[in-house]
Amino acid sequence: MRGRLTFAAGCALVGLVLAVALVSLVWLPYDPADTTGGRLAPPGGAHLLGTDKLGRDLLTQLMAGARTALIAGIGSVLVGGLLGVTGGLLAGFATRWLDDALSAALDIVIAFPTLLLAMLVAAAREASLGSVVLAIGLGMSAIVARLTRVLVKRVLAQDYITAARTSGTSWPRIVAEHVLPNIWPMLLVNLALQLGLAVLAEAALSYLGLGPPPPNASWGRLLQEAQATVLTAPTGAIAPGVLLVVLVVGTNLVADGLRDLADPTRRRSR
């Protein structure tokens, strides 16, 4: 089955990065702050992937960066998903003026670039991984909320909701038994996609110097730092780039696979 295959491939890629991040918690080749390796040492020998221009071990930085990327991705999806789904459900069930007001608020948030939002959050709080997660999560929540609202409205217009009402089913039960089961597959697919986007957003923020500050390692900052020496020491730019692609493609494949797996019309019940 295609869906299952896609899902498995995606899980393998994401799992790879996850494994690297988990290993980094208990073991790293060097201390991330260790700058004694000499500047731009070539791959091989004591430093498997060489060192960067500050003399830090590249493999160590990449492994620690996997941690940052995943925390940023998963954290943002938690923040964005929680806020977004709640807001979307509210807007979906709201009538007239409340719905209008919520929709207008969402449009305003969506019109705000994530980067600008991140700068504001960073300025309001201090620059940290938490601020980055909060900023990306806030930006994401508006998009998730808008999707949730549309999905809820579509479900509420179906006759089976009317049938549930005329069967005396209470609204909380209608939400739990009919609305959520019919919207969560689409939401889940979207959140998986958003996870990939959040990873990219963290990398972009770090590249611009708005990301989590050192000692947090970040693939985006590694890319930025390797930019000047990309011709003489290409590994420093290629390695974080490849890892980014692996993680983002992995989350997209997971999303695609979920879309197929979660649809009962595409699976036979025996």
């Binding site: 179906q158 006759d159 089976y160 049938a163 005396g168 089961p181 019940s269």
Partner: peptide, 23 residues
């Protein structure tokens, strides 16, 4: 509840009136 029990609807579109995710 007595009213709900006594009066039940049947809809036009059998594709919209059954929740696709329930048996």
């Amino acid at each position: 509840r007595a009213f709900r029990r006594a009066v039940q609807p049947v809809f036009q579109d059998p594709y919209s009136s059954l929740d696709p995710r329930r048996r």
